[in-house]
Simulated assay, not measured.
Amino acid sequence: MKQLLLAAALAMIAAQGNALSCLRPDPIETFQRLAAAPESYFVLYGQLTFDEAELPAGVLTNQTRAPDPIAARFAGNGLSRDGFTIDYHSDVTLQIECGGPWCGSARSGVDAVYFVAASDPPVTMQAGPCGGMIFEEPSAAVIEMLTSCMQGGACSPQPLQ
């Protein structure tokens, strides 16, 4: 009987080991990490609009391919040394990424900060399973700190809220 209970407990622990474990992403930490990367990135603030019906529903059972890209439109501003002052309105691509059966997501029509690899239009916005490239409804303090980071000033991650 003890062996059966031990086997059941081990099976439960092993199943939990397959769960996705993510640290809470922070937009300032993301800025710092990408600023140190060899690639160039845009930091955009505004709204992405797209058909939310095209998002993958919940967890994916077919892990053989990534979800199809979603056509979207971005309206907002890009970050410069003066803040989010560069008008940026463009067609974009939203690419949902998955880690195992867990997939990222985004919401249409919500103010957000987007970190986007610099490329010719249309740029691709990545929504990973652990987040980190899209930060919805940022506080005024986050917007101010991103501007400070861009200016080479204070650049400290935000306390958990």
Rank of each mutant, 00 (worst) to 15 (best):
P138E: 04
P157S: 01
T124G: 09
F42W: 07
L34F: 13
L23Q: 13
L4A: 12
Y45A: 03
P129Q: 10
L55D: 03
P159F: 06
I13R: 00
E39W: 08
P121F: 13
F115W: 00
L60T: 13
L34I: 08
T124N: 07
F135Y: 10
C155W: 07
T61A: 05
C98Y: 06
C149N: 11
L10H: 00
G76M: 09
Y45T: 05
A14C: 01
P122E: 12
P121G: 07
A117F: 01
G78Y: 01
Q63D: 12
T64L: 11
R33K: 15
A19F: 07
F135V: 15
A19D: 08
V123H: 01
R81S: 12
I70H: 09
D51P: 13
T147F: 08
I70N: 10
M133E: 10
Q158P: 07
Q151S: 00
T124Y: 06
V113R: 07
T93W: 06
L4K: 05
I134K: 04
G153C: 09
R81Q: 12
E97D: 05
I143K: 02
G76C: 07
E137R: 15
P69E: 04
P67Q: 00
D82N: 07
P25I: 03
F42S: 02
R65E: 10
Y88L: 09
F74N: 08
E137M: 15
A72D: 09
G58V: 14
G78S: 08
E97W: 08
G128M: 10
G152K: 11
D91N: 12
D51S: 15
P129L: 05
T85V: 09
H89S: 12
F74M: 11
S139F: 04
Q47H: 08
A112R: 02
G58R: 02
R24G: 01
M1G: 06
Q3A: 07
G83P: 13
A53C: 06
T85M: 06
L60Y: 06
A9Q: 00
S119V: 04
L5P: 03
P159R: 06
F115T: 01
Q158C: 05
I86E: 11
L79I: 03
P67A: 01
P122F: 11
A112H: 03
G131C: 01
Q158V: 15
T85K: 13
V92N: 04
M1S: 04
L6Y: 04
F42C: 03
V59Q: 11
V59T: 12
F42L: 15
A66F: 04
L146H: 06
M145Y: 06
A15P: 01
E97M: 13
P157K: 00
A14K: 00
C155D: 05
A140E: 09
R107N: 14
S139D: 08
